[in-house]
Write a protein that binds this DNA or RNA. Structure first.
Lengths: 238, 238
DNA sequence: CGAAGTATTGACCCATTTCAAAGCATGTGG
DNA sequence: CCACATGCTTTGAAATGGGTCAATACTTCG
């Protein structure tokens, strides 16, 4: 089954096997996309939403000088732009980080699902609300934390989410992001991210090398990050 | 009709008169709440969602030292915590800014609405997605703009949203927020907000005095803010 | 091997914070 | 109606976190 991870990182609401089947049948196509490719452009009319099967994608907005601000990072199981279904066009771009495999759903398929399965609809709605909750946490992260906290928080969040889909264990996971990427996700410069990573390394909290994250002291890292995972609804880690 | 502003700031989807009636009938009670009162506490189980009829409320999260970060400001017509319906508990607090009038909807009422009116459900879903779009814009605001841009952006956004519900005209509107409140919404200190407001005043872009905002040069202000209102879906101002 | 992206480091600069103090409203209880 | 408390606004001076600029290494890959 293609959809083993469907919404798996999406907390409280497990899908019933009927619901999984409905979604599985709704897949219009499965595609591979190489790394660093734009998938959706802000403002375009869209009639398809994509579920991420393998790999990582990000959503971002550009400032006037073309500098990116990431607004979300997605992991396998996430319905990346389900919100395009009610919204029809997006206010941001979407691009792959590493190479990915995605499943495409046409909006008319989703339309008929929402008309026939209100219970599943509510789970889909919930999934988009979880994205909003993560957005809020990012607002907090950028508004109230210093550079170390911001980076630490990002790594804590990804650790939690990847654990939920079985892609992280013991604080170790692969993440195809560069230091400038981390900067774009954290409202910092690449140079400063480098210094922050060194500081975290020297405190024996975490290493990040060649796309591999290794959290050495989760408790201390979470303290620096003021990380409290309730906002992920359903994550059961410490 | 109590609900004249229902989702009015919520863009593209005008409600049909039948839908307005369904919502109107769903109101369980209407309450007045004084200024600076907490309405919802993070983590509590909720069985009611509130629609804002008059006044302003904010949503926020506390950091470890109890400092607030606002994650949203709501204006009349907004369904403040509709997301509590699918989510059941919230990851943030909600409080009034000035005195407000709110309408309460029990979740079992909303449940039956979603089962009977898929089309209306989609509009409600859309409304929560608009909040997410505003969250994303705030992430951008905090991550990529300096202090002047952040404050300018906030005033531009509120101007646009209040215009949509007929509460702003010619760049003038009332806003029951203090300078420390603006700081909490912008990831700044109160002291610095004061200096930024002076700078904006001295550039003849905007005045803010005694809760009254007066945008003097909207175009220049929007430039400072890098404000592009597409993310509000349906705002037709410049 | 060379090219291009990525990581690292140093020195200097500036935006914003922090700390401190004073001035203004506003409201409350005596 | 005054006295005092409380919270908001304003300003100054000093400290600092993070940015900018610039140069050098390290990878990876064609």
């Amino acid at each position: 089954m293609i959809s083993e991870k469907f919404l798996m990182g999406r907390g409280r609401h497990e899908l019933s096997s009927e619901e999984k089947q409905v979604l599985e049948d709704g897949i219009e196509s499965v595609r591979q996309v190489p790394a660093r490719k734009q998938i959706v452009r802000a403002g375009d009319l869209i009639d398809t939403s994509t579920l991420l099967l393998e790999g990582f994608v990000c959503r971002y907005m550009d400032d006037r000088e073309g500098q990116r601000q990431l607004v979300a990072v997605h992991v396998p199981g996430d319905f990346v732009d389900l919100h395009a279904f009610p919204m029809k066009r997006l206010d941001h771009d979407i691009a792959t980080l590493g190479p990915v495999k995605i499943a495409c759903f046409e909006h008319r398929t989703l339309q008929s699902i929402t008309e026939r399965y209100p219970h599943l609809t509510q789970k889909l709605w919930f999934s988009t609300l979880l994205d909003a909750a993560m957005h809020r946490e990012w607002i907090f992260r950028l508004g109230r934390l210093g550079a170390e906290g911001r980076i630490a928080h990002l790594f804590c969040e990804l650790n939690a989410r990847l654990e939920m889909v079985g892609m992280a264990a013991d604080g170790r996971y692969m993440l195809p992001m560069t230091q400038p990427d981390l900067a774009e996700a954290s409202g910092l410069t690449g140079v400063h991210v480098n210094r922050v990573l060194r500081a975290l390394r020297e405190k024996n909290l975490l290493t990040f090398k060649a796309g591999e994250v290794n959290i050495l002291d989760h408790k201390a890292l979470a303290a620096v990050a003021e990380f409290e995972p309730q906002y992920l609804y359903g994550y059961r880690g410490d």
